[in-house]
Amino acid sequence: MDPIFLVEAAINGILLGGVLAVLALGLNLIFGVLDIVWIAYVDLVMLAMYAFYFMVQGHGWSVWVAGPATLVVGALLGIAVHLLIISPILTSAPINQLLATGGLLFFLQSFATFLWTTDHRSVRLSLPSVEIGGIFLPFTRVIPFAISILAMLALYLFLRHTYIGTAIRAVSQDRDAMALMGANPQRVYVVTSAVGGAMAGLAATLLSFQYSVHPFFGGQFGPLTFMICVLGGLGNMVGAFVASFVMSEIIAIGGVMFSTEMGYVIAFVVFIVVMFARPGGILARRE
């Protein structure tokens, strides 16, 4: 095989990794604070992608307006999921919490089918490509990558330097102690879910540049996103960031060497094997 294909795949892997990292960080943030895996997280992304699609194709909004609007839609979805589904079962058995968000997954997929049928819809953006040394870099991938890096930087600053951001990290380490500092845990949960939802909204916009949306879109990225979170260590943000790029590289390179599905299979097998070697994630501190 021409090595140029491999280089191109490697670069595409990095570009995809940025968007995956946005997804993984959003999910991991929620997990870290609430200790619940939102199985339906990427299905919320699907819903937000429809929102973006209708804003752009239906109402002719500019991408620059629809993008931030989708972010807000995501945040509102995050809050709604927390208040309607998570909040009543905060103290239930973990399996029930998991299944409640699993029920949400069925609900979102079928409700989307009901509303919008199984047609694939895409926001057609005609953007040019740049050519560097014989490798074509389409702007539909470069721009989302750049935005995702900026967004993660913003998230980092938020978690690092604001009171509520630091409180979110603190709650993920000790819920009760943070209540003793005067923070209402419920409020911290809502803010966390809103931020996690906003990340889903952002990811929706970025994914819309390259992928068409359909009701089962979540199946394409959902399992992958969980795996990235686990690989990086549940609740570990830096780990999730690193793991996103590891997984996207495997998928991209495996994809050109074998087939798309085999790329995923290899990634998942790598994931399983790594889990055995480092059950706490690749960056887990050895206690």
């Binding site: 589904i85 009543p88 079962i89 239930s92 058995a93 029930n96 299944l99 409640a100 699993g102 029920g103 949400l104 997954l105 069925f106 609900f107 979102l108 997929q109 079928s110 409700f111 989307a112 089918t113 009901f114 509303l115 049928t117 199984t118 009701p215």
Partner: peptide
């Protein structure tokens, strides 16, 4: 199309919440 599964999904969530 999809309506049956939609209600199914909602009922599952409701069951999990109210019949832990």
């Amino acid at each position: 199309l999809g309506m049956a599964e939609t209600i199914y999904g909602v009922l599952l969530i409701v069951f999990i919440i109210f019949l832990p």
